[in-house]
C-alpha cells in the first residue's frame, strides 16, 4: 500500500498554513506539491480536502522534475474524478508547479482512510461520518448477504440523538446513505462504510 509518507508536512493542512510553509526555502518540490494538493477540496463534499478524504494517495517527482499525483476513486463510477484532476492541476499551477494526475486503483478506497479531521468536518456540515474500522474488517470466505436492515449506531448530526432510522442505503452521491432522526425528525446523510 502506497500512502503519502511526508511526515514533514503532516502538520500542514489549511490554506493559510500552506502559504507560510511555501515560504520556507528548505521545502522540497515534493513537499510543496503535497502541501498544496492535500488542501484541494472534494467537488461533492467541499468541506473535505482530498487529503482528509483519503483519495490523494501519492505524490512523486519524476527524474524529469514533473510532479505526478495519484488519486483513487471512492466508487468505480465516481463522476468527480475529472473534476478532482482538474482542481489539482489548477491549484498546483497557481503556485507555479506543473503537475500530472494518475489514477491508482489499488488498494481500493476505504472510508477508514477519512482522517479524524475529515470526520469532524463532515459532522460539522451535518453529514454523519462513517464509523471507523468497520469497513476493513476482513471476511473469511464469501461476503454474506444481509436481508435485514443494516444496523449501524448512527447519531443525528443535528441534535446528537441516537434514535435514527435508515431511509435508504443509497443517497444523492454514491458514498452516502439516507437517514432520519426520529427525535428531531430531521433527515440527514450518512457516509456509508466501504
Amino acid at each position: 500500500m502506497t500512502t503519502p509518507r511526508l511526515t514533514a508536512v503532516e502538520v500542514v493542512g489549511h490554506r493559510g498554513e500552506v502559504a507560510d510553509y511555501l515560504d520556507r526555502e528548505s521545502s522540497t518540490l515534493r513537499e510543496r506539491a503535497y502541501a498544496v494538493a492535500r488542501t484541494v477540496t472534494d467537488p461533492e463534499l467541499p468541506m473535505l480536502t482530498l487529503g482528509d478524504l483519503g483519495v490523494l494517495r501519492d505524490v512523486e517527482v519524476t527524474d524529469d522534475g514533473e510532479v505526478v499525483l495519484a488519486i483513487t476513486p471512492t466508487y468505480s463510477g465516481c463522476p468527480a474524478m475529472a473534476a478532482m484532476r482538474d482542481d489539482l492541476v489548477r491549484s498546483l499551477g497557481e503556485v507555479g508547479i506543473k503537475a500530472r494526475v494518475r489514477v491508482q486503483l489499488s488498494p481500493a478506497w476505504s472510508t477508514d482512510w477519512i482522517s479524524e479531521r475529515g470526520r469532524t468536518a463532515l459532522a460539522e456540515a451535518g453529514i454523519s461520518p462513517p464509523r471507523h474500522g468497520v469497513a476493513t474488517t476482513r471476511h473469511t470466505g464469501p461476503v454474506p448477504i444481509t436481508l435485514g436492515v443494516t444496523r449501524r449506531s448512527v447519531t443525528c448530526p443535528q441534535c446528537g440523538s441516537a434514535a435514527t432510522e435508515l431511509t435508504s442505503e443509497f443517497g444523492p452521491t454514491s458514498c452516502k446513505a439516507l437517514y432520519r432522526c426520529t427525535d428531531c425528525l430531521e433527515p440527514f446523510e450518512h457516509v456509508k462504510e466501504i
Binding site: 475529472a82 473534476a83 484532476r85 500530472r100 494518475r102
Partner: peptide, 19 residues
Amino acid sequence: GDAAHWAFGTDFEDPLAGV
C-alpha cells in the same frame, strides 16, 4: 477560470490514466 465546475466543461477522463 475553473471549467471543472461545469459537467459539460470537463473532458473525458481515461479511467485507467497512469495505471
